[in-house]
Computed example of a mutant assay.
Amino acid sequence: MSAHLRTGADNSGVPAVPYITTWSAEDRTAGAVTLRPDRCGIAYLDETPHDRDREGALWLRTGLARGRGRPRFGAVHPARQRRAMRLMLCQVCAGPADRDERGVLWLLGDDHDDWPGWPEEMGATHPPVCRPCALASLRLCPYLRRTHTAVRVARPRLGGVHGMLYGPPSGPGEVRPQPLGPALVPYGDSLIPWVLASQLAMQLRDCTPDHLDPDARHPRSTP
């Protein structure tokens, strides 16, 4: 949804540039991907403990210069996306995501045909939202105006990562791992050591539809 938010100010107080958007000054920092010493996954040559999450996934390195340069709408900043997911922050304003007795608020594209019971068990890579930002997104995003689903999620669970999946070198003379393409890899999967993560995925469980009535009285939630 962030790809379609306008850059001008909004009188609702909703940020014009979503928190998880990457800025042009936040170029990827140095760090060539290589094989781990045991050849059972990927690593950085100069890897530090901060390069991996607690589940062992290697993360894409990016700069931290929010607000500098131009916003790259549609490009998600890995570190801020990850923080928003782990702390249940709104992907637009970075305040607490909206929560009520039914659960945390998520705003999704409408993909009911993907599987029976969608979005139950969905691996969502967009963080949740607060209610004011959700309503503003419906006004400003052409895609969401055409089709969207708002849901409350009672039991969200960190499910895995989305990123570039690598494989072993293609031949005996090769030493660099081979990029295979983007993939969503669950935590605990044997492929976790082979993925360069760029987004955290949340498994949505116990979902209830929310109609987001713009006229209803509903104060911004607090932590």
Rank of each mutant, 00 (worst) to 15 (best):
P223F: 03
R52A: 04
L138C: 02
D100S: 07
W194C: 07
G188E: 08
G69S: 10
S221V: 01
A183G: 05
M85V: 11
V175K: 14
R152T: 04
V151Y: 07
M1C: 06
H77Q: 15
R61P: 06
P156D: 02
T21F: 00
G123N: 01
P96T: 03
R152L: 08
L135Y: 03
P219F: 04
G163F: 11
R145L: 03
Q203V: 15
M1N: 03
P128W: 01
A201T: 13
L204G: 07
G103A: 02
R99Y: 06
A30S: 14
L212A: 00
I192S: 05
P18N: 07
A75I: 02
C93I: 06
H211T: 13
L60Q: 14
E47S: 13
P168R: 08
Y187D: 11
D98C: 05
S190Y: 04
R155S: 14
L60D: 03
W194I: 11
P142E: 06
R152V: 03
V76N: 07
L45D: 10
D206M: 01
A216G: 01
T21A: 12
F73V: 00
L58Q: 01
P193G: 09
W106R: 00
H218Y: 02
R6T: 13
A25F: 12
Q203A: 08
E26C: 11
G95R: 14
G117S: 06
R36W: 03
E120V: 08
M122N: 09
Y19L: 11
P71M: 09
R145A: 15
C130G: 07
G41W: 00
E47F: 00
T22F: 00
T48I: 09
W59I: 11
A216V: 04
D114S: 15
P127N: 05
L58I: 06
R155L: 10
G167K: 12
L107F: 07
P128Y: 01
V76G: 05
V175T: 15
L35N: 02
H4E: 15
V104G: 03
L144M: 09
C130E: 02
A43T: 15
Y187H: 15
L180T: 14
A136E: 07
